[in-house]
Structures are given as C-alpha cells and as structure tokens.
Nucleic acid binder design. Sequence first.
DNA 1: CTGTTAGCGCGTTCAA
DNA 2: TTGAACGCGCTAACAG
Lengths: 340, 340
Amino acid sequence: MPPTDPARAATLSDVAQRAGVSIATASKALNGRGDVAPGTRRRVMAAAEELTFTPNAMARGLLAGRTGTVGLLTSDLEGRFVLPILMGAEDAFGAGQVNVFLCDARGDAIREQHHLRALLSRRVDGIIVVGRQTDPRPSLGQELPVPVVYAYSPSDDPRDVSLTPDNHAGGRLAIEHLLACGRTRIAHISGDPTYAAAQDRVAGARAALADAGLDFVGEPLFAAWTEHWGRDAAAMLLERHPDIDAVFCGSDQIARGVLDTARDFGRDVPGDLAVIGYDNWEIVAANARPPLTSIDANLQQLGRQAAQRLFEAIDGVATESGTRRLPVRLVIRGSTIAHR
Amino acid sequence: MPPTDPARAATLSDVAQRAGVSIATASKALNGRGDVAPGTRRRVMAAAEELTFTPNAMARGLLAGRTGTVGLLTSDLEGRFVLPILMGAEDAFGAGQVNVFLCDARGDAIREQHHLRALLSRRVDGIIVVGRQTDPRPSLGQELPVPVVYAYSPSDDPRDVSLTPDNHAGGRLAIEHLLACGRTRIAHISGDPTYAAAQDRVAGARAALADAGLDFVGEPLFAAWTEHWGRDAAAMLLERHPDIDAVFCGSDQIARGVLDTARDFGRDVPGDLAVIGYDNWEIVAANARPPLTSIDANLQQLGRQAAQRLFEAIDGVATESGTRRLPVRLVIRGSTIAHR
DNA sequence: CTGTTAGCGCGTTCAA
DNA sequence: TTGAACGCGCTAACAG
C-alpha cells in the first residue's frame, strides 16, 4: 500500500495509525526513547518506512526551542573570498546536522537589515557574517537574541567575536621567503591603498625587511587589485629600478601582470627576478608562467573555525570576544624558486 | 522598560501581555487582520516595537503548511558555474520573502541523499538542484513531496523540469561571429571531450560552418579545460596550420593559453588571428591581452528562471517538464575585433 | 471590537 | 509497556 497522498508529507500520526499505536508510542519507537516492546518498535519502523516518514523539523524545533539552523549573512557573493569561507562553514555545520540559510545582502545595508529580520524570524540558532574585505564593518549590535560571529570583515565593536586573516603576518611571510631565496632588492606593488589589507600587508613586509636591516627599493606602488595595474606598475618599476631582484605583489592578479611585463622586458623569472603574489587564487596563480608563489589565507579553515566558534557560543561556552587574526600559509611555486 | 530577557526572543504572548490585550487581538493588530480599534492597534504595535518582537516563522509555517523556504542542492560549490546560478536564485527568492537553505553535496551521492532528507525534514517548499556540468544527472525521483527544478545539469528523467544553457547555440554563435568578422580558416581547441558541453559546442559550431559551406581547419583538438592545454594545443596548431585566421576555444582558460602562444609565435591578435573563448569568466576574459571575446551563458538569469519555475510549481501552476535550453549571449572584446 | 477555543506536528510528562 | 494530555508560538474560526 503506497502512501495515502504522495503530495502530502506523512506525519507522525499517520505512522502511528498505520502501526496501530498511539502517537506517543510511535514517537518513542522512532527516537529510541523510553521502553517500547521490540515488536511494537518494528511495526512502527516499518510503517514509517512505508510512508517515507520524515519528521517535521519545525514542529520539533518549536518544542525544543532550537532550530538547528544558522544564518550566513554575506555582503557579497560575487567576492572571491566569500566562497571558500562559506564552504568551510557549510562543511563544519553539515557534519553536525545543522542547515544553513544563505543570505546575500549585495553590499546594501537595507537589504542586510531585511535579511537579518528574516533570519531572526526563522529563529536561527546563530549567525555568521561574512564580509568581502578585511576592513572592519559595522556591528549588528549587542541586542540580538542569538550569537554572531564575524568572518573576514571583523566587527568594529570589540565586544563581538571576529575572525580575520592575519595580513600583517602574510606580508612578513612573503618577505621572509624572498629573503630566504637570497633576494635583497625587493619592491612592492599593491592594490587600493584604502584597503586595510593593503596597509597591513605592507606593514608586515616592512617589519620583516627592517629585521633584516633592509627596506623596499623605491616606494611601494598602490592603485588597484588588477592585472592591468600590475603590468603598468611593473613597467614603471623596471625602468626606474632595473636592479631589483624581487617583487612582492599585493594580489595574485597584480603578480600576474608583473609576470607579463617582466617577460616583455626580457627578465627571467625566477632566475633574475622573483615574484610573489597574495591570495593563492588557484586559477590565477597556478596557471601563470611560471606558476606563482603566493600567500594563502586558509579561508576554508577560517569558515570552519567561524562555525566552530558559533557552535560554542550557541552551546553557551563563553567565547573570548575581539578580533582573532588567523595564520596564513606560504604556497611555493615556480615564480620564486626554479625547478632543478 | 527593556525586554524581560534579551537573550530570549519575545513571543506574541509577551507582546499581548505588555499591551494588555489577548494573544488573538495582538496577532490581528500586527497582521492588519480583522477589525481592531486604532488605539488598540497602536498599543500593540508599540509593545511589539519595544520588545523587538519578531514573529516565529516556524510556528507560522506549522499552521500554514508552508515554510517559505527552499533548498538549493549543489553538487559542488567550488565550481565556477554554480555561484552565479546561486546568486540569481537567491536574488529571485529574496524578493519574495523566501529563504534559501544551501547544501553542498561535494559531488558525493551519499551526502546528497543525506542533505535531501534534511531538506525534506525542514519542509522546504521546493528544491533546486544545481549541477556542475551540463551532462545529465540522475533524477532525485518522482516520489518527492515537493517540486524540484534542475539547473545547469539537467535531470536524466524527462518528467523532471530542467534548465540548462544552450551550448549548441553557443557554438553556433561563436562561429557566426567569426564569420561576420571575415574569418574563414577557423580551428577549434576545446576541453575534455567526455563533457556534453564540449560535444554540444563543437556540434553547434560545425552546423554554423556547414551553413557557410565551410568546415574546421584541421580536426578539433580536445583534452582539458586548462590554460596549459590551450598553450600546447595552439603551438601544435600554429605549426601545422599557420594559415588559420581564427580559433574558437571551448573555454576562456583555453583561449587565454592560445593568446599566450600566439604572442610567442609573433601572431597579431586580432589582426592576424582572431580568438574567441567560452564562459565569459570575467576575471579571465577581461584581463587577457587583448581582452577576450567570449560566449556568456547568462547563468545568473538561469538561476532566476529556475527560481521562477519553482515558484510556479509550488503555486500549483502546471509547468511543462523536460529540458529547456536557455539562450546564450556573445560578449565582444578586443580579441576578435580591433579597436579603431 | 475583543477574547476564547481549537488545532498545526511533535516530544514529554504522568497515569493507567 | 502504552496512551492521554499538555504545550511550543501562532492563526483562524467563532462567540461574546
């Protein structure tokens, strides 16, 4: 006998009726609670199977006071940085029976507020706010009935919990790698100087250079995070300072432009000139000629950690607030060290 | 007087109590239903405001038999094609008070089944299945209690509703553009030949060539969707058939590799050799030298349409089943037509 | 105009 | 071991 009405999802009472027991007994049998006679339990299970019974999570959540859902509030899905974070979070939650509401505010504060209301109305157990830059963003406030974790863009309120990549350490790491490769005449080309990312990376790089008693050759060049700018800046640089032996670039795209210009100038990479990028954007870095050494911000891991922190907060574990900067990682390819 | 317990979300009965009315009256006042005295309504609204009352969507859904949620079941978030579709769908739903559960199956059938159960348990009103290739995928089956729309990867069951880009038309469009540019000696380099996308595009291209009484110069070359393959294939091609005047590439990445090799061979693009890509992957196409003319599959639109179709199905509108192929679009940049 | 009543589907007492 | 009764938060009938 097939389900009565395939269009309507079966309910517990359907199962109970079919098994000839009460709703309460059916519930216990299915959830393994209380004492249920083995035979009864089997009958209930069979009935549930036949009806392809799927418990109604809403009804359950209504009772439990928890929904087992979280909201992912992103400011911009297009952004290259959001996706890996989202994957990491989805991954961490997926394992724990939690489902994710995805909301894209498209960088619009009104829309964000709208989505926030919707999420609260859905009674999500917590919210992760994913930004598209590492610059601080306005806090959602302290008055929310659920915990919030900020990922990538930290909140501007130190009472919030924020996770962001450590760009300062990334700048340092890049320079230390170049130094380890024997380079000493290092220049810097980066993106939009109003980005905290640009400032933090150059600061970290400068600190590392200072530790070695060095400084950049020429002033760091800032403009845009694009391949085009990388090409132009590299041309300026190679004309003005032909003696440089390495370029630290603020993004992989910039680095790729630099590689192009270096080739036009007849410079050999990495023999004559080492180039290091930032972000480890696989599609850009791995396909460059030569493949690009880069700094990876471990974004997927960041997403996982954000989920982890949110879990803790939901479970009432007191999480330390403030902005936590997560370690980054060096990915070595052919643009800084030659194959042998 | 602040909310009693900021940690706990306010309930309708809290509002009613504070306004000194019954729960039912509060409900009517807030939803604009029935006849409520203006003064009473104001008192209720004020109370709701003060408590930042947010109606519990679960309780509401339990009653209404609808949740106002849909599931987005993707096989692979990493994929470049999933994101725009997802954005389009999220966009279309966002306007209609619907929220989206995102589930990433990571290309694993078990995990997909798991997520499907979860979505049904959440009583989503419908599901969109987003694949990563245009090859047909196994149907989720006809027994589901909610409507399903397949996007990008069509279902292998014609009783399902599927939306996929028209790759055949894309291949045709690419060739017609090259012909319009006055090219006649056209070669083809594409990716993995086991992909339907590769086959459909080449078939469409061949049809367009045949209409003009032409055929490809040399046999189309298939291997991988990578820049690297594009470089290698172009080298082979330019050596064997130096007289070609255009290359139709199966992907933007391949095209980009072709551009690199053309430059190495001293060929002028587009003067001497026109190159057209596929996918219009902005980051790849726009940054190429010269910027790459490409075919855009309108994926965001596809996502919106999938949402639209799902809406209709949810509302009981009889949607025609089968696979619908959506039109693609030509994006002209500098690799096929020179600036003047 | 307002309040009382009856569920939506489920888990959890507590009697029987 | 089983089942009747209650309530999670809300809306839709009705009755007052």
